[in-house]
Structures are given as C-alpha cells and as structure tokens.
Simulated assay, not measured.
Amino acid sequence: MLLRKKKTEVCALGRHISVSADKARRVIDQIRGRSYEETLMILELMPYKACYPIFKLVYSAAANANSNMDSAEANLVIIKAEVNEGTTVKKFKPRARGRSYAIKKATCHITIVVKDISLDEYEDISFYSLKNPRWKKTTMVNRNVYNSESEVVWDKK
C-alpha cells in the first residue's frame, strides 16, 4: 500500500488591486507566519488602505480551506504571503494651455497561502495514479566501449 501526504495548503489570489506593491508589502510583512485569528485582528487595527483588500483575501483563503478541506479556522496558519507588481493604469488629465498630464496608478497582485496544521495525515494512492505515472521510464544506450550495459533514465512527461 502506497501512501501520499494529503494536501493541507489552500491559496487565495487577488489580482489588479489598486494599491502599490510597496504599500501592500508593509502590511503583508506583518501577517506572514501568523495564525488566522491573529491576522484578522492585526488587519482590523492597522490604519492603512491596503489592509481591507488583504483582509478580504485572508478571509477568502479561510473560506477556501473550509470548503475544500473542511478545516477549522482555529487551525489555519498563513505560511506564504507575497505581493507582485501588477499593471499600471494610465490616465491623462487636461492641464493649462492645451497640455495633458499623465496620471499613473499602480496595481498589485497579492497571493495568500494558508495551511491547516491539524491535517498532517497520509492518503492511499489510487490505482489510476499508479497506472498513469507522472514519470516514464526510458532506456538510453551507453556508448562506452568498456561497459556494454544500458543505463536507465527517468524522464518527466
């Protein structure tokens, strides 16, 4: 009987959030590695604009964990939180003497990954996954004159 570790991580992704990446990172750095309930408390009390979309993403990640793995909110820990720069929204504002002034608004993509620390179990690997492995076995002929054995190499599909 083969065993495989159960999936214990769930993520939530927020794209094109209208906050600059640097402003979101100073909030994300405060919540990385903390429990779910402690994170919600921190986000409610911090006075930054980026806290509300991050709060919604953490709440969404917990809802995903509850829906997908039936995990309780008390067992969730934020193991990964990252902010990447998104597209820049460009607008033009009319100015004096017929000129235009470019307004650039930065956006960001935020990824929150939560892990259920109570789920550290193993599950059986189904017959289907044994029948169709992710790795296939190929043989390569060794061109060495002194050794006539063939060499087995594992290639990814």
Rank of each mutant, 00 (worst) to 15 (best):
20 S>C: 11
20 S>F: 10
26 R>N: 05
74 A>L: 11
20 S>K: 08
105 K>V: 13
138 T>V: 14
55 F>E: 11
74 A>E: 12
53 P>W: 05
93 K>W: 05
67 S>N: 08
69 M>R: 08
26 R>H: 05
122 Y>V: 03
94 P>S: 10
37 E>P: 04
74 A>V: 09
81 A>E: 06
85 E>D: 07
135 W>S: 15
47 P>S: 10
13 L>F: 09
113 V>W: 02
121 E>S: 03
154 W>L: 15
122 Y>N: 02
83 V>G: 01
36 Y>G: 02
76 L>A: 02
63 A>F: 00
87 T>F: 13
9 E>P: 00
62 A>P: 04
59 Y>C: 11
25 R>M: 05
38 E>L: 10
68 N>I: 11
140 M>S: 11
85 E>H: 09
36 Y>V: 05
43 L>Y: 01
123 E>T: 03
118 S>D: 06
137 K>A: 13
139 T>N: 15
124 D>V: 12
83 V>W: 00
82 E>S: 12
98 G>T: 01
110 I>K: 00
28 I>S: 04
87 T>G: 12
116 D>F: 00
116 D>L: 00
74 A>D: 13
8 T>D: 06
64 N>S: 00
121 E>C: 02
146 Y>K: 15
150 S>K: 15
125 I>T: 09
149 E>A: 12
14 G>E: 01
115 K>M: 01
44 E>A: 12
23 K>Y: 04
3 L>C: 02
73 E>N: 13
89 V>D: 14
29 D>L: 03
133 P>N: 10
153 V>M: 13
